[in-house]
């Protein structure tokens, strides 16, 4: 057993010399290792299948440059394909031409939406914007309290006309769609440049809640709908991302909890299946643990190819 793909491929190609064109036999061994590495990284099975298919096609008959052995040559192709799917250059946030820019957050329970709301607000404030946070999760116990604390930490006001579920009142009350709409109005009146709408976590198959998210979207016509997804998610990434794409038609993706040691293959699944750009990475619990997404870093993280990539770059 070898620790990572890099080691395993080095072993696979120990006895081969990099000459001429790649043969089918060269490629098959490598593809097997790559498939296994992608599965271990939680890339969804159908995505692994298309991906390795494409790699195989591109690699067959590819010219082997003198400096690389066949394994390294395939890895180079894999890396290029990965980065291409993960989205070459990161896209910037789209801002509204007139009036406040509206950003809506959506995703599964516990993905990191409320935390991200604070991070985005903090980030935009530093850039000279005047964000307003809107508390449209009236369902999770103390979600509104949580957003208020987050807003306080970020030094950004929170619009919260409904208290949501609290110790004082345990029944869900108020209408998240109305709260979002009022929040936008409030931002217009007070001339906030950005509105960030935090929504409740919901499952892809929860039709009622998905309808609610879609209604919130219609009510505030966001410039960006960000789908927030946990980097630790496994095969369910495809079903969930598809459901949110159909439900709220998100415009971008934020990958959270990248400070962990999950390989984050979901990034590939979501990008491939939805075609939406991954825009930001969330890398911790604190306000500034937030960065622009780097496709190249993610590619090498998914396949654990550190050493081999350095070799290839030097070739």
């Amino acid at each position: 057993m070898f620790a990572n793909l890099s080691d395993r491929l080095t072993e696979t190609f120990r006895n081969l010399r990099g000459k001429g064109r790649l043969t089918e036999a060269d490629i098959d061994g490598t593809i097997r290792e790559i498939r296994r590495a992608l599965l271990d990284a939680d890339v969804a099975v159908p995505v692994v299948r298309t991906f390795t298919g494409n790699i195989r096609e591109r690699a067959l008959g590819a010219e082997v440059s003198g400096a690389l052995n066949p394994g390294q040559q395939v890895v180079k192709i894999v890396n290029e394909e990965l980065v291409a799917i993960l989205g070459g250059e990161a896209r910037q946030l789209r801002f509204a031409k007139n009036g406040p820019t509206v950003i809506m957050l959506a995703g599964l329970q516990g993905a990191g939406k409320t935390t991200l709301a604070g991070k985005l607000a903090h980030h935009l404030k530093q850039q000279g914007h005047t964000p307003l946070l809107v508390a449209a999760d009236l369902q999770r116990p103390n979600a509104v309290t949580q957003l208020k604390v987050v807003g306080e930490r970020a030094g950004v006001p929170v619009f919260a006309p409904e208290a949501g579920v609290t110790r004082e009142d345990e029944r869900p009350r108020g209408n998240p769609v109305k709260v979002a709409k009022k929040g936008l109005k409030e931002a217009e009146q007070r001339q906030h440049s950005v509105v960030i709408v935090d929504t409740a976590g919901r499952l892809g198959i929860d039709q009622e809640l998905m309808k609610q998210a879609s209604d919130i979207r219609k009510a505030v016509e966001p410039d960006e709908v960000l789908f927030v997804i946990d980097a630790m998610i496994g095969q369910d990434a495809v079903a969930t991302a598809t459901a949110f794409q159909e439900g709220v038609d998100f415009t971008g993706v934020v990958l959270t909890k990248l400070d962990g040691d999950a390989r984050g293959g979901a990034a590939l699944s979501v990008a491939e299946v939805t075609g939406r750009p991954i825009m930001f990475a969330s890398t911790g619990e604190k306000l500034d643990d937030f960065e622009v997404f780097h496709p190249d870093r993610m590619a090498s993280r998914i396949l654990d190819m550190g050493d081999i990539l350095t070799l290839i770059e030097q070739a």
């Binding site: 409320t114 604070g118 999770r140 116990p141 103390n142 949580q146 930490r153 609290t166 345990e170 619990e285």
Partner: peptide, 13 residues
């Protein structure tokens, strides 16, 4: 975590 204890208190009640 922001409001973690409040969340547990809500559950407690």
């Amino acid at each position: 975590r922001a409001a973690a204890a409040d969340q547990l208190e809500t559950w407690g009640s």
